[in-house]
């Protein structure tokens, strides 16, 4: 009996891991509005924008990053691939900047829809999503491979 339960648990864990893995395998894309006037960003520029080091686009206008806290797995995956940091480390990083009166963290979208609206309404807005979830009016400016 014990062995059978153990096997079943192992099977479930394998399935869960497999599914999670499949989800995380897809590319993540950094996106901007089609009207942004920006064709591509470098990894360093994406880091500067999302970590608040320097929020200027190659076009000269201000970059307005937006986070997706309503999808914690996406947010975690994004920062993992961008700077290899856990969400707790990103929060610690922001607590230093916020409580020393420096840059604010990216805008925290309350929903996927709000994030999309922000991205299409603001030419300087920069967001991220899974590549299969990208609406056609948003332009890919950087791709984060698995």
């Amino acid at each position: 009996m014990k062995t059978r339960h153990g096997l079943r648990r192992l099977l479930i864990i394998t399935l869960l891991l497999g599914l999670g893995g499949a989800r995380a395998d897809g590319a993540l894309v950094v996106v901007m509005s089609g009207a942004s006037g920006v064709d591509s960003l470098t990894r360093e520029e994406v880091i500067n924008i999302f970590l608040g080091r320097f929020r200027q686009l190659p076009s000269g206008q201000a970059a307005l990053p937006v986070d997706q806290p309503e999808d914690p797995a996406l947010l975690a995956d994004f920062y993992q691939r961008l700077v290899n940091k856990k969400p707790a480390e990103i929060r610690a990083y922001w607590s230093r900047l916020v409580f020393s009166g420096k840059t604010a963290p990216p805008r925290q979208a309350k929903s996927h829809e709000e994030g999309l609206k922000w991205l299409s309404d603001n030419p300087g807005a920069v967001g991220y999503m899974r590549s299969d979830a990208r609406p056609s009016q948003l332009k890919v400016v950087f791709t984060l491979g698995p």
Partner: peptide, 17 residues
């Protein structure tokens, strides 16, 4: 806050280090 050294303007924010 004074930033004499790299972390000195946030040294009370324990969560940050």
């Amino acid at each position: 806050g004074t930033e004499f050294y790299m972390l000195s303007d946030s040294r009370l924010v324990g969560y940050s280090y």
